[in-house]
Design a protein around this nucleic acid. Structure first.
Lengths: 242, 242
DNA sequence: CGCATCTTTGAACTGGTTCAAGATCCGTGG
DNA sequence: CCACGGATCTTGAACCAGTTCAAAGATGCG
C-alpha cells in the first residue's frame, strides 16, 4: 500500500536552466546569480502511478515542482473515504506548506507516472530572503494554489455529474496530443464527489455519443466543443448566459 | 444592488496595538518598531449586510482584515448562479491577491454587518521587505487561505445535504454566545451547493427535532453534540470511523 | 491460464430538485 | 398604528438524477 518514492540523485543545477517546464515552474525567472546562491542538492524524483509522494502529517522538509505526470492532493474524510482537493499538473508546485508549517496537510499521490524536483526548504528560505525574484514567485505560487482550489470547487464540485465529468475531461485534456488520459473510476469519483458507478455510466455514455473517442485503455480523444457544451461553457471557453 | 462601502477614516495606528482581533490577525506579531515603518493610513471600514467590499476584476490596491461580522467570497458561475467559495470570519484576511495581482479574483460581500481594516498594499510591501515577522505572517495567511479552501470543499461540498447543513451550523456557531446566526436560505444554498428549498426543509426539520433552538429571526442556539452527530463527527470533534 | 482488480450494466430505491402555492416577515406610507 | 406589498421562507407533490446493491464483462499480471 505505502509505496516508497524512487529517488535519483542529481547534483548539477545547470539542468534547471534547461528544464522543459521551467518557464511555468517555481524557478521560472531566476537569474544565474540567483542559482549561485543554491548550495543544497536538488533531487530528481520519479514516481510510478500510485506511489505516494507524502502523507498528511509527514514532516515537511521539501517542496516539489512537478515536471511531468499528474499528482492528486487528497483529504481523507472521517468515514474513510477520500476527497481529491485538487490536481497538480506539470509546472505546478506541491507542498508549499513546508515553508510555513512543520508538516504536510494533504496526501500527495501520483495518478500517472511522474517526475518531480525535490527542493529542500533551506534552499527556498535562502532564495526567499536573498532573491526578490524568487520571493515574488513564492507569493505567486501561493496565489496560484488558492485560485486552483477555488476553481476546483466551482468546476468539479458544482452542477450535475455529467457537467462535472465533462469539465474533468477538458481539464485533463493534453492540448499537445489532443488526448486525455482519465484516472481510474474511483479516483474520478473522489474528484467529483460522485460514485464510481455514476462516473462509469457517464463515461460510457460519452463514448456512445462520441464525445470521447477511444484510443487506448483510459485514453480518449475529445470532442472539445461537444464537451464544452455539456459542461455549460461556450465553444470559446467563456460563459454561457441562460 | 451595488451598495457602496461606508468608509470612516482612522489615522492613528496606535489602535492596532489594542485591536480586539489583533492576536488572530495579520498584524499579529508586529513590534512597535515594525509599526513605525508604516506611514500610510489604515482605514476603518464598516459594511452593512449585503454591502459589497469589492467585485471580481476590481483594481486590487488594499488587503483587508476582518474585525467583526462575516464576509462571503463568491465565484459567479457561467449560468449566473453564484457559488460561495469560502467564508471569512473575524481575524481573517481578505484580498491577499492584491499583493501579487492587478485585480481581485472574487466578489467579497458582507452577509452580516461587518467592520474591517483596509491596509494599502504599499504598507504590506514595505513591511514584507523590512519586517521578517510580517513577511512570515503573509506566508502564513496564504497558507491559511489554502487550508480554508480545502476545508470548505471537504466540509461544505461533501456528503448529504443534511450533513452539510449541520456542518455549516457548527461552522457559524459563536462559541462565545453559544448562538448561531444563519444567512439567508439562498446564501446557504450557494454555500452548500443545494437548493434554497432543501436548505429550508432541513433547517425546519432541525428545529423540529430540536437540534436548533429558535432565539430570533435566523438566530439559533445549537445542540452541538447532536449536530456533530448528524455531521458525521464525534462529540469531541474528531473523526467517526465506520 | 487463472486469479484479482477494475469497469460496465441492470434494477430498485431515495435524496434532492422542481414547480407551484401559502405563510411569514419587514419596511413603507397612509 | 395599522394596512399594504414585496421579499423571504416554508411546505406539498411529482419527478428525476444519482445511489445502492448485485452480478456480469474486461483487463492485466504472475
Amino acid at each position: 500500500m505505502n509505496h516508497t518514492a524512487n529517488h535519483v540523485f542529481r547534483p548539477d543545477l545547470a539542468r534547471c536552466r534547461d528544464c522543459g517546464v521551467r518557464k511555468f515552474a517555481l524557478f521560472n525567472n531566476l537569474t544565474d546569480e540567483d542559482f549561485k546562491l543554491v548550495h543544497m542538492p536538488v533531487e530528481d524524483i520519479a514516481l510510478a502511478k500510485r506511489d505516494i509522494l507524502y502523507n498528511a502529517g509527514d514532516l515537511a522538509q521539501s517542496i516539489y515542482t512537478l515536471r511531468s505526470g499528474l499528482i492528486k492532493l487528497v483529504h481523507y474524510l472521517p468515514d474513510g473515504n477520500q476527497r481529491v482537493v485538487r490536481l497538480v499538473r506539470p509546472g505546478g508546485t506541491i507542498g508549499l506548506e513546508a515553508i510555513v508549517s512543520e508538516c504536510f496537510t494533504h496526501h500527495a499521490e501520483a495518478i500517472q507516472d511522474s517526475r518531480l524536483c525535490r527542493i529542500p526548504i533551506a534552499v527556498i528560505e535562502k532564495l526567499d530572503s536573498e532573491s526578490p525574484r524568487l520571493h515574488k514567485q513564492v507569493l505567486n505560487r501561493w496565489h496560484q494554489a488558492v485560485m486552483d482550489s477555488d476553481n476546483w470547487l466551482t468546476q468539479m464540485s458544482t452542477g450535475t455529474a455529467r457537467e462535472r465529468v465533462a469539465r474533468l475531461c477538458l481539464f485533463l485534456n493534453d492540448s499537445e496530443t489532443g488526448n486525455c488520459q482519465l484516472p481510474g473510476r474511483e479516483d474520478i469519483g473522489a474528484m467529483l464527489g460522485i460514485t464510481t458507478e455514476t462516473a462509469s455510466r457517464i463515461i460510457a455514455d460519452f463514448r456512445r455519443i462520441e464525445l470521447l473517442d477511444f484510443q487506448a485503455r483510459n485514453i480518449f480523444h475529445l470532442d472539445v466543443d461537444g464537451l464544452r457544451d455539456v459542461a455549460g461553457m461556450d465553444e470559446d471557453g467563456s460563459a454561457n448566459q441562460v
